[in-house]
């Protein structure tokens, strides 16, 4: 299997440890991973701002960079969703179609492709999962609370099987964190309030480590956790699954 790792632009620049954890985790699972150096970004920032057409060169660059792999794995539900959903505005060549269908979020890759249900790590903390909207409602990696009272999903299924872990039950299982790309600055007041409310839900229910499969949500929540000087630690799911220390 020929696997490419796609490390989203902001993860590359600000959270190299998440990229490293993803890479190490995949290697531990016996996957040979290639990191194409030409990669940049999925193009979402411009598209969400209303400039989808300006994203086209970025889309084409992405396709060119990642053509020929069996899977393009990324530790971001949001970026994977963008490639799958929004690369419909460029000509649908075989390469484009293949890249769209083969781009996959890290946890789905582990559970659905590698069929791994359990990882040999111990994590004796109270862990609060932030379910990202693009992962849940976009990629359907979990069922939304609008549909069912049962909390399910791929990320939760992996976390449940970790030794020593205690999962936080939140008052609101899957409310948006308020990051929303450019929303986080253009609608600063609402964005911040949403983030604060999410963090408070975790505080009230005892979360020690806040995690999720989307670093963009976590970047926003971490910004609040650090501003409020809370004892909570924010880690990407890849870091926990890779056995990183808190």
């Amino acid at each position: 299997m020929k696997i490419a790792l796609f490390v989203p632009c902001y993860v590359d620049q600000f959270y190299p440890n998440v990229g490293i954890a993803t890479l190490q985790l995949l290697e531990k699972l016996g996957v040979e991973v290639d990191f194409p150096m030409e990669q940049t970004c999925c193009g979402q920032p411009m598209a969400n701002t209303g400039f989808e057409k300006d994203s086209i060169p970025v889309y084409n660059h992405f396709v060119k960079t990642f053509t020929g792999y069996d899977y393009i794995v990324t530790p971001s539900g949001s970026c994977a969703y963008h490639v799958k959903k929004h690369y419909n505005i460029i000509e649908q060549t075989t390469a484009v179609k293949e890249v769209r269908s083969k781009t996959i979020e890290l946890v789905s890759f582990i559970t659905d492709v590698l069929k791994v249900k359990e990882l040999p790590v111990t994590f004796p903390y109270k862990v609060g999962l932030h379910v990202s909207c693009h992962g849940q409602r976009g990629l359907k990696n979990a069922t939304a609370s609008e549909i069912t009272p049962d909390h399910d999903g791929l990320v939760l299924s992996l976390l449940k099987n970790i030794k020593g872990i205690d999962l936080t039950v939140l008052n609101r299982n899957d409310e948006c964190c308020g990051f929303g790309g450019s929303f986080c600055v253009s609608e600063e007041a609402v964005s911040a309030k949403m983030g604060i409310d999410r963090v408070n839900d975790h505080v009230k229910n005892g979360t020690q480590v806040l995690t999720g499969a989307d670093m963009s949500c976590l970047m926003h929540l971490e910004g609040i956790v650090r501003r409020e000087k809370l004892a909570m630690k924010v880690m990407h799911i890849a870091e926990i699954l890779n056995g990183n220390k808190v």
């Binding site: 600000f14 959270y15 990191f35 650090r226």
Partner: peptide, 25 residues
């Protein structure tokens, strides 16, 4: 910087992932 009204910016790492990758892989 509206981001910083209620949030800290991420802590800036020494290297980007790609820089780390070039050195270590």
């Amino acid at each position: 910087n509206p981001w910083a009204k209620a949030r800290e910016l991420p802590e800036v790492p020494e290297h980007s992932f790609r820089e780390w990758y070039k050195q270590n892989k």
